[in-house]
Amino acid sequence: MINEILFMDGYGIYVWSAFIFTCLSFTSLYTITKIQYTREKKKFIAKFGTLESEKAAFAKSQTINKEILSNPSGI
């Protein structure tokens, strides 16, 4: 059973390489996107921390800014 799934009558090398390539592409795209998201979010939080209290209060009054600050991971 295992051998049949692995070798697939000699076609295993083609089938598995196609599936592994797809899996690697998904993983790379997900990782890159996650890194970009985290970087932008960290930048936002750092900038927010440097704001004067009045400006910070104004910025925090916007729903979207509140959402960014409250959503820790994004996924």
């Binding site: 795209l29 997900y30 996107t33 996650k34 970009q36 998201y37 932008e40 979010k41 930048k43 936002f44 900038k47 927010f48 704001l51 910025a59 979207i64 800014n65 960014i68 994004g74 996924i75």
Partner: peptide, 19 residues
């Protein structure tokens, strides 16, 4: 999933400029 993550990143970028 990727679209949502990218879209959120773009929105945060805009908000960064806003700050």
């Amino acid at each position: 999933l990727i679209f949502l993550m990218k879209y959120n990143t773009e929105l945060i970028k805009i908000k960064n400029k806003g700050l």
